[in-house]
Every structure is written in C-alpha cells, then in structure tokens.
Design a protein around this nucleic acid. Structure first.
Lengths: 144, 144
DNA sequence: GTGTATGCAAACTGTTTGCATGGAC
DNA sequence: GTCCATGCAAACAGTTTGCATACAC
C-alpha cells in the first residue's frame, strides 16, 4: 500500500498531507524493520532529493504523535523507530538483531508484575520491555 | 563508606586510583538513585572544582566496564547510570519515578521468554526490562 | 486567503577525542 | 622511570529551532 495525498484520513491524523510527507510515509512503510531518522531521511531522498533532515524529524515526531510510528529503542546514539501494527493495545517489541525486523509481542509481564511489586515493596506503575533475538527468517537462514 | 586512594582493590578494578576518581566514586555513592553523567560531574565538583567533564565521562566508562556502575536507561537524551548492588547476576531495575531511587529486580522474564519465542517463531537471545513505579518510601509518603 | 509545512543553516546538547602534562604505581 | 589519567577545548553526532517562502486546505 502506498500513501496518497488525496486520501481523507492519513498517517498524520490532523496534519496536512504534503508531497514530502507522502514520500516519508512511503519510505517508512518500505523499511520493513527498525530504522533511525537518518535511515529514513536517506530512503526518502531516494524518491525526492529535496527532502530536508528537519522535515524528516518533524514528520517523525508527528507520526509518533499520531501513533503511526513508534520509538522502539536506540542504536549507537540514535533513536530507533518502527512502523507498528499493534496500535494502541499494550505491547512490546521483538527486534531481530540480524535483520532489524520488528514484531509486536504481547506483554510477558502482565502475569508477573504482581510478584515483583510485593517482593520489594515497590509499586510498579509502568515498564519497558524490549526483546532481542532472531526472527524466523534469520533463524533458518543463519543455521547453515 | 568512603573510597580511599590507598585501598588495594577498588571500583575501577585494574585502573589507577587517583584523587579525582575517589571524588567521583564518592559522589556516585552519595547519589542514592539514578543520575546522569552531568549530575555526577556537578556533584564531584562540589568536592573538587577542578574535575573536568571528560574525566567524569572516562571514569563512568571505566566504572561501567568494571561492573561497579550500570547504565539503567536514559532521561531527556542523557544516559542514566546507577550504582548497582546486584553485581554480575542477571537482573533488571526498578526505578522510582518519584525519587529516582533504583533497586535491582530479579528477571521476571526467565519463566516466560520460552513462550514468547515459540509463539511467533522469534528466538529470543536477549532482553531489556525496566520497571517504573514508586519505592516503598514514596508509596507511604505519597499516599496522603 | 490563511496558516501549516518546508528547506536551509545555525544553534544546541550530550559525548568523545587529541595533546601535553602530572602523578600513581 | 613508565605510562595511565587528567584538564582543556575542539570536534563530533544527533536533534531542534528561526525564518522566509511554498503550498494544502
């Protein structure tokens, strides 16, 4: 699916859909896995060389705000983003350390957080969980 | 307990124990909770105004290397460190969102990671878990 | 026509590095 | 005496911001 400036509702929610934003959204959709803002800027520039870094940063901020994009960690000092299909529902991420692919994962803590808080007297109100590993493709591909 | 340049083994493991490093170690021990490198530099400068930022960064890197200090997350773009008593043993952190206090927590995933990897075909090789909440002191203090 | 999004570049923040020197071992 | 750790400041990378202009609505 490719975004279009003509459609009524889009990834930016209430923002204006400009040609650059279409390019950025398309580039993000074609990324597959996690990417930095710079990765996205490079990809977007392949379609439209005039897209500036600031525009990409602003677009990413707007996309994150609208929930279309998610910050999923960091890589060597840069924030790592990914298009996430899990939407609003509480979840975490499986990040493939080989290909960078991101998959949503149900929260594995829901059942155990209760024990954690009773054990130390800490009342847990939130948590971050990121799982690293190999996606099915990289597992089979990396076994030989 | 206050570090001393005379003791044989110290927080830096094999490194040299200089006056600046003693100051930095003492400052870190008096922090209580999580702190940024800048926080630590400010605290260290209260004892010794000549300590430079670069020295603090280098000391923090060495302390992290030796396992005496741990990177426990980030706050507004800066890395967050904490003195951690759990040592080498696999664990995660409970961060009090009220006072910044850090406590080690046993890994709540050990029992469930198996299910996560079977469910999606992902082979999980590592994970980050950070729990946020209120420490016992802040729970009782914050109830009124 | 209005006001948001843009590009450019400068500014800003956190962090690292080069170099001559002091001092721990 | 040797060589690591230091301070200073410049360099560096990622990110944000100001401003005049283009263009979506």
């Amino acid at each position: 699916m490719v975004a279009s400036a003509q459609e009524g509702s889009h990834a930016f929610g209430s923002g204006r859909m400009t040609a650059q934003r279409v390019t950025i959204v398309d580039a993000a959709e074609q990324m597959g896995g996690a990417f930095t803002v710079d990765d996205l800027a490079v990809a977007a520039r392949r379609c439209d060389a005039t897209v500036g870094v600031a525009t990409v940063y602003r677009a990413v901020a707007a996309l994150e705000e609208s929930g279309w994009l998610e910050r999923v960690g960091e890589r060597s000092g840069s924030a790592l983003f990914a298009r996430c299909s899990a939407g609003d529902h509480h979840h975490h991420h499986l990040i493939c350390t080989s290909c960078g692919r991101i998959e949503p994962a149900d929260c594995p803590l829901t059942a155990v957080v209760g024990t954690v808080e009773t054990a130390s007297g800490f009342v847990v109100t939130g948590h971050d969980v990121t799982l690293y590993g190999l996606c099915p493709d990289c597992v089979t591909g990396g076994e030989g």
